[in-house]
Design a protein around this nucleic acid. Structure first.
Lengths: 204, 204, 204, 204
DNA sequence: CCTTAATCGAGACGGTACGTCATGTCTTGGG
DNA sequence: CCCAAGACATGACGTACCGTCTCGATTAAGG
């Protein structure tokens, strides 16, 4: 008998995957140009040269569409290994502050939507937060392994400190997270995590 | 002559200040109920029992209206002084995690708008960030003064760490910044800022 | 006490009656140009320089809008009185076949909708059928009074014969109800209604 | 040699004539249920369990499809011969008013479309008008032959009177052309066509 | 007291975008 | 080449808000 549990027999004309591309690309562009709040489905359809139906057939809401478009963005995942915490965090700082204006504008445009859409929040985490966190987590773990960083810390909290400060600076303070800022934060982190307190530091 | 440079002589019926109250209150409620994205001027007008004109006569945009409504919220400004960094930060943690669901929902509803409106960002800073930062900054400065915290740190960065981690948790991770979370973060901060590294820690 | 049963206190800005005019006029034009079936609300709005809301605020459906537009058309109501049935019906024939291309196209465009919309049917009756019927009924009654037409007929049926033949010709046969046709029908009617049968007409 | 001048050599799989049946039947049903205006090709396809392509492969428009579906309907063609005009017209009246609700609803649904489509008008004529007209024309001609009806009338006009009054009643007046109505009309016709005017009728 | 002028609630206005539906065509895989 | 299924661009649907603009009625302040 040939009754395998084949999932579903696809019937009818399949979705044209070229259109996925066109639509997400248009979404991407518009997100960078006008931001999430002013992005309209009609504009996406027009820009992509596509009917609105073709969009709604794939994503049921603006948030889902944007989530998919943003999901295409990828941050670099290579984890530096210079041998010192300062070196590693410095490379990460360099990577994060490396200008990629379009991606950054998309990100900023995205923040507006994150608060309300769990999908979007997940996408944002998977695409941006998690990769960044894991890079920091890795270099921190190595530093602990090397004895460079004390072993009694909760690395989860320590890891989040760097992305959190960047996010706070961008969103709340509305200032750029540039190289100088990142280097300074890295300095402070290295300071508190690794610097041996000089004897006699405490007043007496 | 009485020709002072008074801006404009107001003529005709003045704005009814009771309406300011009604409108902002309605805005407040709706912000908590449906969030910034779904808050409409028409709903505010209806809820406040007011014509749309009365709103636009006072605030020229949704963002400005929301900014004004949020500006009414105040966080507690009292700075604890228990004598130890751990004690002070613990009290701050307690205050921040003290449940005020309406205020919190308004805040989350606000985040969506921050990315696009400088006014709103300013309001958010003045109403939430700055008071919180200044409380942390004060207790940190006192701890440095007591010699409890090393003096070679940039307190600005250190100060922002706590609010940044809270903001990141709420917005990016979508998890509550509850008492347990805040206490844990405070623990870690106290650990790295004050704990004297035991001599010979690094040696194998 | 001045507590008259005043109907309703009108509140808010009243409907702009100029727009009624513009909208009905646009509807009228389009009805003549493309017919009922191809008439769209969007085209009416565009032609009238009006938002769709302004139309729906007044008429809740295409059928109602068209009914209102058609209700503006009026047929001439003057009833001829030449002294003879032939003379009177001849004048009516002349009036009906007098070319008014726009009105005629509107009428033809309307037929499509009549079958499905009671409002539209009523409007069609009030605007076209009833006035025409009453003209014919009047001249017939006068002819009966003069003894020109036999008195034992149901004038309601006789009256409808002329409009029915015209309608049938236009809709079912798709041919013009021109002067020649109308005169011919009038001839036949006069013949059967008034012509005294010659003695010995019957065979045998 | 088998080289007849056959127009085109049909190649590939021929149209499945069972589908013609299914499609026309579905069209028929829907026409009776929702009328021409609300009949959609998609609904026909769904009801017939057929792809839209199968419909468009056969009929190029909704009007043509409906025309084909209606063309299947047939009215009874038997012409009565009772020996008198009143008897013959009475039988015709009985036949026309014999209730066939589905056919009637299809007919009414059809009227909407007639005004715009010449094909549809032709179909309507061939299927309904002509058979009915020819029945009436036959009995009238026989009555003239018998000397029952005067010979100086244009039978074409007289013939159309009955169907025209029925059509007018259904479409314009929106009232049923039931047995009572038809009998009454027949009475009047018989009256004017055959009744000898009493001598001295005109005198006061 | 009586203008004058801007307020008030209500809601119409021209727009824009929404999300849905039907059009007629095209594209799958399977006879 | 047909067939069912269903995607495709197009375009209209009827609704909801936008921010502006009337309406008649109200409310101060200045003459």
């Amino acid at each position: 008998m040939t009754c395998e549990p084949e999932a579903v027999v696809p019937r009818g004309r399949p979705l044209d995957s070229n259109l996925d591309e066109e639509i997400l690309s248009a979404t991407h562009d518009l997100l960078a140009e006008v931001g999430y709040e002013r992005l309209t489905m009609e504009a996406v359809a027009a820009r992509a040269g596509v009917g609105k139906g073709a969009i709604y057939r794939r994503w049921s809401s603006r948030a889902q569409l944007v989530a998919a478009a943003v999901g295409r963005l990828r941050v670099r995942k290579d984890v530096p290994d210079t041998g010192t915490l300062r070196g590693d965090l410095g490379q990460i700082a360099a990577a994060w502050s490396e200008p990629n204006s379009k991606r950054d504008r998309v990100l900023v445009g995205l923040i507006a939507a994150i608060a309300y859409d769990e999908d979007l929040r997940r996408i944002h985490r998977e695409t941006f937060s998690d990769p960044r966190n894991s890079a920091v987590a890795t270099v921190l773990a190595r530093a602990v392994g090397r004895g460079e960083v004390r072993a009694d810390l909760d690395l989860e909290v320590v890891t989040r400190t760097l992305p959190a400060l960047v996010f706070y600076r961008l969103v709340v303070e509305g200032r750029p997270a540039d190289r100088a800022f990142l280097d300074h934060v890295v300095d402070q982190m290295v300071l508190v995590l690794t610097h041996p307190r000089p004897v006699g530091d405490r007043a007496g």
